[in-house]
C-alpha cells in the first residue's frame, strides 16, 4: 500500500501504525509479494460473513527468541 493509503487508513480508524495487526517479514505470503519491514499490506480475505473482506497488516521483523 502507498503511504497516502496508509495515512488514510490510520486516520479512518484513528489508530497509530503500531496498532495494526502484524505480519513477520519472513512470512511466506510477504516474501511472495516482496514486502519490506514497515510496509502495510492489504489482505483481501474470503470472509464467511461478508463474502469478501479487507484486512491490513504491518510488516515487522521477527523477534529473536
Amino acid at each position: 500500500m502507498s503511504e497516502e493509503e496508509v495515512a488514510e487508513l490510520l486516520a479512518m480508524y484513528r489508530i497509530s501504525l503500531e496498532q495494526l495487526p502484524k505480519i513477520y517479514h519472513d512470512d511466506p505470503a510477504v516474501q511472495a509479494i516482496g514486502g519490506d519491514v514497515g510496509d502495510v499490506i492489504r489482505i483481501i480475505r474470503d470472509s464467511r460473513t461478508a463474502g469478501r473482506a479487507e484486512a491490513y497488516r504491518l510488516v515487522v521483523k521477527r523477534p529473536k527468541k
Binding site: S47, T49, A50, G51, R52, A53
Partner: peptide, 9 residues
Amino acid sequence: LDLPYRTRE
C-alpha cells in the same frame, strides 16, 4: 456503497 461484498452481490 459502503456495504459488505456479499450484501452488494
